[in-house]
Simulated assay, not measured.
Amino acid sequence: MFKALRNLLADFGGDSQTRHFREDDHRLAAAALLYHVIAVDGSVDESERVRLHGLLKSLYALDDEETDELVRDAETADQEAVDLYRFTSLLKDRLELAERERVVAMMWDLVYRDGELHEFEDNAIWRVADLLGISNRDRIRLKQDVRSQAVKDA
């Protein structure tokens, strides 16, 4: 009930913490999943934040200020979420399979950013891919593609 009241007030401009990206915006859903995967191991380092910013800026053709807002909104959305279904169901409804695979590939890119794959990160991506309707075979293919690219870039 409080959430509904807060949203109503935000619609009338009464909330100074209004999110730039609405809860039904697929960009926020994707960004929240990406933020979740870098935070799930208990620490978000600067290289992960920088990479997240770059991926979102490029993917959605945003300027720096819009990207900063999206990252802030994504962090808040992830912290408020009780599960990942809220984000994955929106993406599954709005995005084609190739676009959903791109989100999973970006998740792999982010987890390899700090040089190691934590089991919580691996499990989070497995759950997200499953909820997005991506097969185990394709999830593993995306993982291997990103890992081989990360090795080349290192």
Rank of each mutant, 00 (worst) to 15 (best):
M1P: 10
R6I: 06
R6L: 14
A10T: 14
A10S: 15
A10M: 06
A10N: 05
D11G: 15
D15S: 07
Q17T: 11
T18Q: 13
T18R: 13
H20M: 05
F21R: 03
R22N: 07
R22T: 06
E23T: 11
E23M: 07
D24P: 01
L28G: 05
A29N: 07
A29Q: 05
A32K: 02
L34H: 00
H36T: 01
H36D: 11
V37Y: 01
V37L: 02
I38W: 02
A39W: 02
G42D: 06
G42Q: 03
G42A: 06
S43R: 15
D45Y: 00
D45S: 00
R51T: 04
R51H: 07
L52M: 11
G54E: 11
L55M: 10
L56R: 07
L56V: 00
K57E: 06
L59F: 01
Y60M: 01
A61S: 14
A61F: 13
L62E: 09
D63N: 14
D64N: 10
E65Y: 11
E65S: 09
E66K: 08
T67L: 02
T67F: 05
T67A: 09
L70H: 05
V71C: 07
R72A: 13
D73M: 02
A74L: 04
A74S: 09
E75R: 12
E75H: 09
T76S: 06
D78Y: 13
D78P: 00
V82A: 14
Y85I: 15
Y85E: 11
R86C: 02
T88D: 11
T88K: 04
S89D: 15
K92G: 00
L95W: 06
L95E: 10
A98K: 14
E99V: 02
R102Q: 10
R102E: 13
R102T: 11
V103I: 15
V103N: 12
V103L: 13
V103P: 12
V104R: 06
V104H: 05
V104L: 09
M106R: 13
W108T: 14
W108P: 14
W108N: 13
V111M: 15
Y112R: 10
Y112S: 09
D114Q: 13
G115P: 08
L117Q: 05
H118S: 08
E119C: 00
F120H: 12
D122H: 13
N123V: 01
N123H: 13
A124M: 09
W126N: 12
W126C: 06
R127I: 07
D130G: 05
L131H: 12
L132C: 03
G133A: 08
G133W: 03
S135R: 08
D138C: 00
R139S: 06
I140R: 11
D145E: 15
V146M: 06
V146D: 03
S148W: 04
S148T: 09
S148K: 14
Q149K: 12
K152G: 03
D153A: 09
D153T: 15
D153K: 09
A154T: 07
